[in-house]
Design a protein around this nucleic acid. Sequence first.
RNA 1: GUGGAUGUAGCUCAGUAGGUUAGAGUGCUGGAUUGUGGUUCCAGAGGUCGCCGGUUCGAACCCGGUCUUCCACCCCA
Length: 456
Amino acid sequence: MANKPSIPKGTRDFSPLEMARRNHIFDTIRRIFKVHGFLPIETPAMENLSSLMGKYGDEGDKLLFKILNSGDFKALLSPEDLSQTPAGKLGTMISGKGLRYDLTVPFARFVVQHRNELTFPFKRYQIQPVWRADRPQRGRYREFYQCDVDVIGSTSLLNEFELIQIIDEVFTALGLKVVIKLNNRKVLAGIAEVIGAPERMTDITVAIDKLEKIGQEGVLAELEQKGLSQDSIQKLDPLLLMEGSTQEKLEFLKKFLKASEIGNEGLSELGRLLDYVETDPVGADLEFDLTLARGLNYYTGSILEVKSAEVSIGSICGGGRYDDLTGIFGLEGVSGVGISFGADRIYDVLNQLERFPKRATLDTTLLFVNFGETEVKHIIPILGSLRKNGIATELYPEQAKMKKQMTYANSREIPFVALVGEQEIQDGHITLKEMETGKQERLTPEELVERLSSAK
RNA sequence: GUGGAUGUAGCUCAGUAGGUUAGAGUGCUGGAUUGUGGUUCCAGAGGUCGCCGGUUCGAACCCGGUCUUCCACCCCA
């Protein structure tokens, strides 16, 4: 043992306590996905690199984990390749597979590949880890879980509405206060059009996205640096100063985007979506946020993002509509919309607020003390009947000192201990000790099942 | 990918003008208490001071590199 064992940067082990808490999150999310009629799928951890590359922008390509080809990958490279190709490119030449970066792109691949077996609109959920070669920080890991729900094969805004309801239900169930931010890519496209730079939508939205952080002047400076014309920048300026309620902002944009067909379409979608929400208002704060852009470049319509109202950790859920995603895999004209919950960040938020249910850790209900072979043999059938009745029961595997066995029960937070020694065997009873109060009672095996069924 | 911090017992942390056997609390093991845990008392085990190298008679402490974790940027769940 020369070196202590370790795990790769940005990955984590999970203890039983952490697992109980993580499962609380997954179970809550899964339950709500199910009652909305979504169906589960899973896809492989690795995908062909060709399925992944170019789907997340240049930045995303850099963050993909690539899997080295087996065999003599050196033979794939000529001497010129080795000396002239940049190191980043070289990776893709000796690698044909990569770890998935999100669940949406593999889902699009799945839909195209299985299109004949699926019934559309197809509503699926998927809870699996994804990997990104990012530099780790708080709330940012290299391996983390996403919980995705998507509807594909329907353009109805009812789907967006349902996703908003799901978000609200999940965070209500988890006891978190959140802000849901809403925007529409068509509005952003309209803005780029109106200010005379339709080709620069990405640069413009990325800059606007930083409004809160770097301010109005910062945004304008960044756009100037990116080579946007003075004329366009001047036209954009009033938009950055826009204030007021969601309704007021939409009114303002209506005038601003008057000349843009796509912009109007975006506004209309936003308006209709908000109308749906009004029929059954959500508990969370729902606001229109022009500065919401979202990096993934396949979004084309509604985009949304959820942030904790109590802890600053980045977004804990996000998503949007994508009209062209399956087109990349050869299936045109299928629109989808979906969101992704970041389970690890939700965990961090709940942890920081100490808002996990108290008994999320409780597993074993009853421990039998081990007094020796004779007693053990007498106990074994009783263990069976307790477990058949759904009572989580353990027998201490060693004939250790009483104190040691009691300490075990105590540190495991097992609420009941059963004592069966010589006396108990003789009169057919079990001594049950309730750890919290220290009270003891003598029960028959049937009474024990009865007693613990009501206590668990 | 760029810049900046961090790393001492299982855990939380003390410990520098570089100088004998590196400390505390908590946890762990044993005993007081051979069928009764959480409180108390006593005793004990546990550290190549992240790793590698350098300076020095001598390094936990100074210097360089490396890894980890964290912070800012970038981006994002």
